Every structure is written in structure tokens, then in C-alpha cells.
Computed example of a mutant assay.
Amino acid sequence: MTAHLLPPGIEVFERGWLSANNILHFSDNDVSLVDSGYCAHKNLTVDLVCNALKKHQLPKLNKLVNTHLHSDHCGGNAALATAFNCEIYIPAAEEIAVKNWDSTLLSYDNLGQECPQFAHHAVLIPGEEILLGKYVWKILAAPGHDPHSIMLYEADHRILISADALWEEGFGVIFPELWGEAGFEEVAQTLDLIETIPVDLVIPGHGAPFTDVARSLSIARSRLDYLASDPGRNARHGAKVLLKYRLLEWRSRDIAQVNDWIANTPALISAAKLLNMDIDEFIQWLPKALVKSGAAKLEGETLVDLA
């Protein structure tokens, strides 16, 4: 357990893999939340914030900060804005896409996911600082998993909010590589940046906060070397993660519906091309690969999630 390592005014709501962790920052002058989870969990996210406001006798949620705009990190934005009338801060590079609500640029169409539309009020610019609760955090660029992702660093307590740039056992899927954009080198640069920062505690986008940063960086670099040495590995891994993520929400799905979703998800079509498979071959392969990995099972004509 690492809760005792958090300074006063920070609380982490550790979520399941369908929703990113939410980090509450609070003081007498500001109450902020980092990341809002997936839309399917929006009511739970609102309840978590409501309960925390009541527990800490806080008047309102002032702002919501998104480390990046994948649906598991911002799917609760619209619900939180409605419930609390809070301001929403997004990475600066996503401003035009959000303003125009371009769901292709925002990755939702590409990844076959959903995110209710929301409006933003301010942007997060790498190199600048932002007040969250009691503490001032530096905004750091963290491309790789997502080209526009940011991290947040608090120097006095040496805390890094790493989003999906670093987990205890790796990092998020390197999605840009699925559609032919650079990602491997960007992940390496972000890991190098983390190594230069004095960090005692990492709060990742998924999983529990952790303290052995050197170990996690070593695991991440080993993982990156493995994926970068054969881009097909990243394509296979990314495809399985995308299907698993969707299945977490579905819980179970008729295989014909699963196959239709695969055939109409652009990132998976790109993955098939990287693997030199035609789409019919890929559709046959992907559910079986997920079953073989132990993440799902087939019951007749139904694909069922396994936790």
C-alpha cells in the first residue's frame, strides 16, 4: 500500500482497467481531479467525487485535468461537467480537435471506442505549471502511447503522475505505430525524461501507485526493446488490447458482432496490414488470439471476457 506516501490533499481512486485512475487534489482554494475514467463508469466516477467532497468537506470541484484524451481517461468529462460545473483542461495539441469535436482526430473512431462530447476551458502546455489542490505541478510532454499525452510532476514531494507513459510493469500500447506514425522513439525519450527527474512516488494511469521507479523503468525499456525489434509484436499486442478493452465493457458478445466491430475499426484494419493479413484472416485470428492469451473464452458463438 502506498496511500501513506501521499502528502495531505491528494487522494487516488484506483479504478479497474476500463477506467483510468482518478487523482483528487484538494485544498481550501482549489479542488481538482486528474482524469475522469470511461463513459460506461461515469455514474461511479461522479459518486466517487461526490463522496470525496463530502468526506473532506469541500464545496465544489473546480477543475478537471486530462493527461490525454483516450476514452478511458476522459470518458467521464461530460458527466462531471454537468454534475459539478467544473472547468476542463486538456493537452494544448488537442484543442482544435475538441473545439470541432473531430472524433477521428480524437482517436475514438480509429480505436473503436466511445466518448461523449465535452467542451474545454483551458489547455495544458508542456513546460508550464498548474495549481492542483495544495501543490504546483509542472506539465511535462510524454509522447509515445499517445502523441499529445502529458505527465505532471510535483518537485517538493517528488511525485510523478505518469498517465500511461509508465506503469509499474510497462506502459500503454504504442498506438501511433499501428497506423504508421512514430512511437517507439517517443516512448524511449519519455522514459529517458522520467529517469532525469527525482521521483519517489509514481501515480500511473492504471494500477496502484509505486515507488521502485528504477525497476519499472528497466521493465519498460525491456518491453520497448522487445516491441521495437519486431513491429508486428506491437501490432499483435495492440490489437489484442483493443479487443480486450471493448470486451471489458461488453462482458460478452456474439462472435458475429465481435467480427463486425473488428472489420470496422480502423486501427485494427491497420494492424492487419502490418501483420500482412487480409481482413478476413485477421478477423479469424484476433478473437482466438485473445482466448489463447487467457483474456477471454468462447462459449459456443459467444466471446466472453475473463477478468
Rank of each mutant, 00 (worst) to 15 (best):
A163V: 03
F175L: 02
T190Y: 04
W167D: 10
E154C: 12
E185R: 08
L131D: 06
Y135F: 12
I194V: 15
E181M: 12
L152N: 06
I159Y: 10
A163W: 00
H148M: 07
I150S: 03
L201Q: 10
T190W: 02
V187C: 02
P126I: 06
L160H: 06
I194K: 03
E185T: 15
A188Q: 11
E195Y: 05
M151R: 03
P143L: 05
L178G: 00
I219R: 10
P126Q: 08
L124I: 04
E154H: 14
I174R: 00
I203Q: 04
T190G: 02
R158I: 02
V199P: 09
T190F: 01
V213S: 08
V136T: 14
L178S: 00
E186F: 08
E177C: 05
F175I: 02
F184K: 00
V123Q: 03
A141R: 01
F175W: 05
F175R: 03
T190C: 05
I139V: 15
Y135Q: 10
E154G: 10
I203L: 15
H157G: 08
P147T: 09
V136H: 08
V123A: 04
V173R: 00
E186S: 14
G172W: 00
A163Q: 03
P204I: 12
A163P: 04
F210H: 09
L217Y: 05
T196N: 15
I159Q: 07
I159E: 09
L178V: 02
H206V: 11
W179R: 09
A155R: 11
A214P: 10
W137V: 07
H145C: 05
L166N: 00
E181A: 13
E128K: 14
L191T: 01
V187Y: 01
M151E: 03
F175H: 02
D164T: 07
Y135C: 03
S218K: 13
V213N: 07
G170P: 00
A163K: 00
A155P: 08
E168H: 14
D192V: 05
K138S: 14
T190L: 04
E128C: 11
K138D: 14
I203E: 04
D212L: 09
T211K: 13
L217A: 11
E186W: 06
A155S: 14
S218G: 15
D156R: 13
D212W: 07
A141V: 01
F210R: 07
W137H: 09
A165L: 05
I161E: 10
A155I: 08
S162I: 01
P147C: 08
P147Q: 09
F210C: 12
F184Y: 15
E154S: 11
A155Q: 13
D200A: 13
D192G: 06
E185Q: 13
D192A: 15
D200W: 11
K134M: 09
G183Y: 03
K138I: 04
W179L: 05
Y153P: 10
Y153V: 10
I130R: 00
A208F: 08
I125N: 12
V173N: 02
E154P: 12
H148E: 09
G170M: 01
I150H: 06
W167F: 15
E186V: 01
E129D: 12
G127P: 05
G207F: 10
R215L: 14
I139C: 06
H145V: 04
L166A: 01
L166T: 00
I159H: 09
K134Y: 07
